[in-house]
């Protein structure tokens, strides 16, 4: 998600303001001048300062052009996929999905759905995505539940062994 420096700088100024305000609400420690408000206040002021500098585009010349390595001569860079910016948010949404349903649906079915969605979104054929959606959750569940004893939710479909 490419945002302009104005947006990110403005956000930092606002966040710094909230931090300073939040810090001022902190209770003091009786008989002591330095309490829990000092550190967040300094950070908040720093964020406001940085945000303003970013708004003014100070330090912009230091930014490396991009991490993407330019194409070698005679090679064309392929175009990024369509809806790239929206697709990128699939994984965090899937994690939210996991926290919502894993407890009653169980680890295996939830994980299978997540694996299937990501694999298909990355352009896998069903031939690859389906076996992966069955085998990967089984493998991960075996390692984490049996070897590492992490209590992953059983839900409607417990691990068969």
């Amino acid at each position: 998600m490419q945002l302009s420096d104005r947006v990110t700088g403005g956000f930092l100024v606002a966040l710094g303001g909230v931090a300073v305000y939040g810090a001022s609400l902190q209770p003091g420690v009786p008989g002591q001048d330095v309490g829990p408000s000092v550190f967040p206040t300094i950070i908040g002021l720093g964020l406001i300062g940085c945000g303003l500098l970013i708004l003014l585009r100070v330090g912009h010349s230091f930014e490396a052009p991009d991490d993407v390595i330019p194409a070698a001569p005679g090679e064309a860079l392929p175009q990024p996929p369509r809806f790239a910016e929206i697709r990128a948010f699939i994984p965090p949404l899937l994690l939210v999905f996991y926290t919502l349903v894993a407890d009653w649906l169980g680890f295996l079915p939830t994980a299978a759905v997540m694996v299937l969605v990501v694999a298909l979104a990355l352009g896998a054929r069903w031939r690859l995505a389906l076996p992966l959606a069955v085998l990967a959750p089984l493998g991960i569940a075996t390692i984490f539940m049996k070897l590492l004893r992490v209590p992953l939710p059983d839900g409607i479909l417990p691990l068969p062994w």
Partner: peptide
């Protein structure tokens, strides 16, 4: 293929954090 690695990484993120 990335399509087979990235889903596993995603699940490891979820399970590892849990």
């Amino acid at each position: 293929p990335r399509a087979s690695i990235m889903p596993i990484i995603l699940m490891l993120c979820a399970v590892g954090a849990f």
